[in-house]
Structure formats: structure tokens, C-alpha cells
Amino acid sequence: MVPTSYYLILSAIIFTIGAVGVLSRRSALIIIMCVEMMLNSVNLTLIAFARQWDNLNGQVFVFIVMAVAAAEVAVGLAILIAHFNLSKTTNIDDVNVMKW
């Protein structure tokens, strides 16, 4: 059996890639994708722990995370499109009418 730590390390790597992506990429679209990646790595973590503890909480949590992630993307893309309609850009460096 593959030890839990392997899954954890893999998911940590994916999470980090996602986090670094959020911080370094300039396109809002890619940032949303990176956030999705982070959420998916969380799902992997949850499943690994669920197997380790041999209960279903983690599995249930994954469903909730997936549902929330879907809702988040829906809202996020809508905001993105609304913003794009006004500013004609998805580059977050241009999102600077107000000082950060």
C-alpha cells in the first residue's frame, strides 16, 4: 500500500504550484485556474486522510469542496467577464484604478 505521506507530498507540491501560480501569473484567467488546482490538491489530501483514518468525513468534504469550487468558478468567470467588458483586459496589473 502506498503510504499516506506520498499523497500528502504530491498534494503539497500541487498546492504550492497553484499558490505560486496565483502569486506570479498576471492573467486573471490563469489565476482562477491556479486556485482550482489548489482546491484539487486539497481534495487529494482529504481523500488520503480519509483512507488513513478509515472514515468518510474526508470523502464527504471532497464533494463539498468540488461543489464550492464549481460555484466559485461560475461567480469568478462572471466577474471576470464583467470586468473585461469595461476594461478590455484580463491582466491584473491593469486592475489598478484604486491603489492596492
Binding site: G18, E72, I79, S87
Partner: peptide
Amino acid sequence: LRSNEAAMKYFLLGAFASA
């Protein structure tokens, strides 16, 4: 534009924090 920008910033950082 400000309102859209507020939403965008709130969403991107909020989603990041949620993760």
C-alpha cells in the same frame, strides 16, 4: 470600473484565501 475592480480583487484574493 471601481466596483468591478473591487469585485475582482475581492474574488481573486478571497478564493486564494479559501484555498
